[in-house]
Amino acid sequence: MLSHTTEHGVLVITVDRDPGIDGRAALSTRMTHLIEAHVPTPVVVDLTDPAASDATVSAVLRAHQLCSRHGVSMSVVTRSAPLRRLLGERADAAYPRLALYTRMDTAVAACFTAAA
């Protein structure tokens, strides 16, 4: 369901498959632990499942709020236009804008540049 790596000083969290409603809490908890363990490292979340459900969207938006509270930039990568629109619409306006990308290299470069 979840893996991570570090690329050019950016924490990359890959969500391989949607956890479904029953796995939402576990996904959110794992993402929280990774982000807190790597603060102040910028974060890119890679959503490889184009059919991600509300459970994944909810976990990603919670991670965005956490990153914002820590002053850490966060971006999301997905090739799914409907998923990008959904994330953009549901992102909390009280926090910095959630950056959405279609390519991993672009997202990592933007996070790396912003953190430098």
Rank of each mutant, 00 (worst) to 15 (best):
V39S: 12
H8L: 04
C111K: 06
S80N: 12
V12H: 01
A81R: 15
A115T: 11
G9H: 03
I21L: 08
E89A: 15
R79N: 14
A110G: 04
L86W: 15
A114C: 04
E7K: 02
T113K: 08
A25H: 07
V44Q: 09
G9Y: 05
V77A: 09
A110T: 13
P19F: 05
V39D: 15
H4K: 03
H4R: 03
G20R: 01
P96F: 10
A94H: 13
C111N: 11
A91K: 10
V44R: 08
A114T: 12
Q65F: 04
V43A: 10
D49E: 07
G71W: 10
E7F: 01
I13K: 00
A94K: 10
V12L: 02
L87S: 12
A51Q: 11
A110E: 14
E36P: 00
A109Y: 11
D105C: 07
R97H: 14
V39Q: 13
M1F: 07
L11W: 00
T6W: 00
R24K: 08
L11F: 02
H70Y: 14
R103W: 06
H38W: 03
I13D: 03
E89I: 15
V10Y: 00
S53Y: 04
V108P: 03
L66V: 10
R84D: 14
A37Q: 13
